[in-house]
Design a protein around this nucleic acid. Sequence first.
DNA 1: AAAAATATCAAACATCTGTTTGAAACATAC
DNA 2: GTATGTTTCAAACAGATGTTTGATATTTTT
Lengths: 209, 209
Amino acid sequence: MNKNDTTKSKILDAAEQLFAERGFAETSLRTITARAKVNLASVNYHFGSKKSLIQDVFDRFLSEYTSVLNAQLNSLESSDNGSLTTETLLRALVSPLLALEKQREQSISIFMRLLGRAYAETQGHLRRHVTDKYGYVLVRFTLLFQSAYPSLTNDQIFWRLHYTLGSLIFTLAGSDALREIAEADFDRKMAIEEVIDEMIPFLAAGMKA
Amino acid sequence: MNKNDTTKSKILDAAEQLFAERGFAETSLRTITARAKVNLASVNYHFGSKKSLIQDVFDRFLSEYTSVLNAQLNSLESSDNGSLTTETLLRALVSPLLALEKQREQSISIFMRLLGRAYAETQGHLRRHVTDKYGYVLVRFTLLFQSAYPSLTNDQIFWRLHYTLGSLIFTLAGSDALREIAEADFDRKMAIEEVIDEMIPFLAAGMKA
DNA sequence: AAAAATATCAAACATCTGTTTGAAACATAC
DNA sequence: GTATGTTTCAAACAGATGTTTGATATTTTT
């Protein structure tokens, strides 16, 4: 059997999409299993609980994302430090998302909505899980940034990085809807790559301000 | 009886805080009425349904916010157009939030978390309600921006405004947690006004990029 | 091919959800 | 002070939720 057609991965696929669309509490296991065309009890059989399913959805996405991002940061670190511009750093952050989009044939906004929801879960188990397991990549990214901009203080970099993440997650999470609005206003549907190409100079200018 | 101690406003207060903390679906009417110390049935008596309660929470916040913002935009419009810098426009967007924070003695992050959640509710009734009733202020703001920066194309302004909103909502929604992290790292607790003072040059630089 | 382990399934379970009910308490008007 | 309208309250309701069960089917191992 194809690895993507197992009951387990069919559940992950359906859950990922539904969680992104509606949120965690708003998505019932019955909705997930109906879309995945599997039995209701198989969620608890394969994942133990709904909580674990949510974590596993994030693990699948984030482990793929961080492994690509880490590879990018590796090559940036080994290359000449003089070429570490803000723009290339930001591209390193975004390009794994575009790669994932192509590979999975799934809109970036799905992943970004998931991330946004994890972020909104301020008191929940999910945010702790995500930051504990994947926070180190953000730390790595911060350190690279510091070496590129030694004139900025540490807390300036800390905050500016969060402004940037806010723009990225917020805009890309809503990118499908925003692109439709923009299409109605300006008679042209932008590709997601164009949106990103517009966004990076905006963010870079802020970072260097 | 004091107007803020009626059953109705006690429910609104409790609901506003709990919705911001946990989300709409994750907050039950029983949790709300327990915190508000009122009877369970009083929600349906005063608001009709949970849906209406959610809308009323937003209406109370947004009507206060937009009325202050509109006043600010009025005075900006009547003043000399040459003084319309990006920074003053952004301040007009944020300062009503600071005013509300003082008046209600409630952290800005509560309001911003609410806004973020309304934004995340992509398919729900809430987003339509909010955009239908309060979208015009954003349009007003956009028009002012266009007049200040005639060199930018309309879709550039559209997108840059959304990048800005992303940064603002995302950062301010998480400002309490972020300020604590920053305090642990840099041994100084920043005031929310300082965070904003740091953010505005960042955003202004991007807007002008 | 028999045995053992793994996976699927329909049904039931206990719990929690928003909402409704009808009586009791309270306030207001005459 | 009685009558009328408004608000509160405990209790119950119907429906949905995550989870468990025990039987059946499927796959893997020997």
